[in-house]
Amino acid sequence: MQEEMHKLLDEVLEGADEEEVISIRQLLNGVKRKQNKLNESIIGGIFAMDKCLDAGNFTISIPITTVTHNSLHIVHGGVTATLVDTAMGTLANMMLPEGYGAVTTNLNVHYLAPGIGEGLTASATIVHQGSKTMVVDGKVVDSAGKVVAHSTGSFFIIKKD
């Protein structure tokens, strides 16, 4: 399998332009970030998610790169949605006792501005925490502080097996 992977990587790199080489490097570094436990998931590693809990405020930041771009060279809406869902879901899970988890049941994202600049930061706050569900508010801002998206999410609380 490794020989097959080396062959594929060589083929892709041989025909790659500069943007594609940068993207391949970011994808490989993302896997490395997960292996080194800098991120808990491959997607968190690929987007180089950096989590911060400071004085009760929870945020996740990502750099804007060719991997996050859509065909218009702005951040793809799905990346923005993934970022804010991750921030809200992580906060929801942090609020639960041991043995419980929260999963997204509804995600609303209102896109307000294009994702441009150096990076994006998503913040999350709990709106309501019940015994079976949570509602969380999320916001994504660009590196200049402009609000890119506002979001709300509903989360179902489950007992882990």
Results as ranks from 00 to 15, higher is better:
residue 10 D to K: 15
residue 146 K to E: 09
residue 22 I to G: 00
residue 110 H to Y: 09
residue 39 N to G: 08
residue 14 E to C: 06
residue 51 K to H: 11
residue 143 S to G: 13
residue 33 R to S: 08
residue 136 V to P: 04
residue 113 A to V: 05
residue 105 T to M: 08
residue 41 S to A: 14
residue 150 H to N: 14
residue 131 S to C: 07
residue 119 G to A: 06
residue 146 K to R: 13
residue 32 K to Y: 13
residue 96 L to K: 08
residue 54 D to S: 14
residue 133 T to R: 08
residue 40 E to N: 14
residue 95 M to G: 07
residue 67 V to G: 02
residue 28 L to C: 10
residue 135 V to G: 02
residue 62 I to Y: 00
residue 139 K to V: 15
residue 13 L to H: 08
residue 15 G to E: 14
residue 137 D to I: 04
residue 89 G to Y: 02
residue 129 Q to E: 05
residue 53 L to Q: 09
residue 61 S to R: 10
residue 22 I to E: 02
residue 47 F to G: 10
residue 73 H to M: 02
residue 136 V to W: 02
residue 160 K to F: 03
residue 3 E to W: 09
residue 98 E to C: 03
residue 51 K to I: 07
residue 18 E to C: 05
residue 160 K to D: 05
residue 139 K to W: 01
residue 87 A to E: 07
residue 139 K to T: 14
residue 37 K to P: 11
residue 72 L to D: 01
residue 135 V to R: 03
residue 97 P to A: 12
residue 69 H to D: 06
residue 28 L to M: 12
residue 133 T to E: 10
residue 40 E to H: 12
residue 137 D to L: 06
residue 96 L to M: 07
residue 68 T to N: 01
residue 65 T to P: 00
residue 69 H to Y: 10
residue 117 G to S: 12
residue 54 D to H: 06
residue 117 G to C: 07
residue 158 I to N: 12
residue 3 E to P: 13
residue 156 F to T: 15
residue 141 V to P: 04
residue 74 I to T: 10
residue 130 G to W: 01
residue 65 T to E: 00
residue 100 Y to D: 11
residue 150 H to K: 15
residue 88 M to C: 12
residue 78 G to C: 04
residue 100 Y to N: 13
residue 31 V to P: 06
residue 116 I to T: 13
residue 14 E to F: 09
residue 35 Q to W: 13
residue 49 M to Y: 07
residue 143 S to D: 14
residue 21 V to Y: 00
residue 2 Q to V: 14
residue 106 N to V: 11
residue 51 K to G: 02
residue 25 R to A: 09
residue 55 A to P: 00
residue 153 G to C: 14
residue 132 K to T: 15
residue 74 I to W: 03
residue 149 A to Q: 10
residue 71 S to A: 08
residue 134 M to P: 01
residue 32 K to T: 15
residue 118 E to H: 10
residue 26 Q to L: 05
residue 85 D to N: 05
residue 67 V to R: 00
residue 17 D to V: 12
residue 75 V to W: 00
residue 132 K to C: 07
residue 129 Q to R: 12
residue 83 L to D: 03
residue 38 L to R: 09
residue 55 A to W: 00
residue 38 L to S: 08
residue 150 H to I: 12
residue 32 K to E: 15
residue 13 L to D: 06
residue 55 A to L: 04
residue 124 A to W: 05
residue 137 D to W: 01
residue 44 G to I: 07
residue 122 A to L: 11
residue 8 L to R: 11
residue 134 M to E: 04
residue 45 G to Y: 03
residue 27 L to S: 10
residue 73 H to V: 01
residue 61 S to K: 09
residue 36 N to V: 09
residue 24 I to T: 05
residue 107 L to R: 00
residue 51 K to L: 11
residue 105 T to I: 15
residue 115 G to W: 02
residue 96 L to D: 06
residue 108 N to K: 13
residue 96 L to V: 09
residue 113 A to R: 11
residue 112 L to C: 12
residue 116 I to F: 08
residue 67 V to C: 02
residue 148 V to R: 04
residue 136 V to S: 05
residue 57 N to T: 14
residue 159 K to F: 07
